[in-house]
């Protein structure tokens, strides 16, 4: 179960605005799904290691050799707002 307060807390972490209606709905839908998935709580998993990757390989490492970068035009091409050759955002200090 997850209540509206928890939904709001999680939405804040995830930077999602939710309307009052969406919060209610999210609480009920997530509760339903969590009820279902919580069944894995019944399993005895004592001593079972977690799996992050199924493939058991060691990381390949990249040689420290430069590759061409994008031009600044290409980098900024899709930016919603550009100021002084940079990506403009509302100031975090505002």
């Amino acid at each position: 179960m997850i209540d509206s307060d928890q939904v709001l807390h999680v939405a804040r972490l995830a930077r999602l605005e939710l309307s009052e209606m969406e919060v209610q709905r999210m609480a009920s839908e997530l509760s339903q799904v969590l009820d279902h998935v919580a069944r894995i709580g019944e399993l005895d998993l004592e001593g079972v290691p977690p799996t992050t990757h199924v493939t058991e390989v060691d990381s390949p490492l990249r040689p420290d050799e430069p590759r061409p970068s994008l031009s600044s035009e290409a980098a900024l091409a899709s930016a919603p707002a550009v100021v002084a050759e940079g990506f403009a955002v509302p100031s975090p200090q505002a």
Partner: peptide, 12 residues
Amino acid sequence: AYYGRAQRVRTK
């Protein structure tokens, strides 16, 4: 309880 446990189920 959730993510960590699910990773163990994945192992099984």
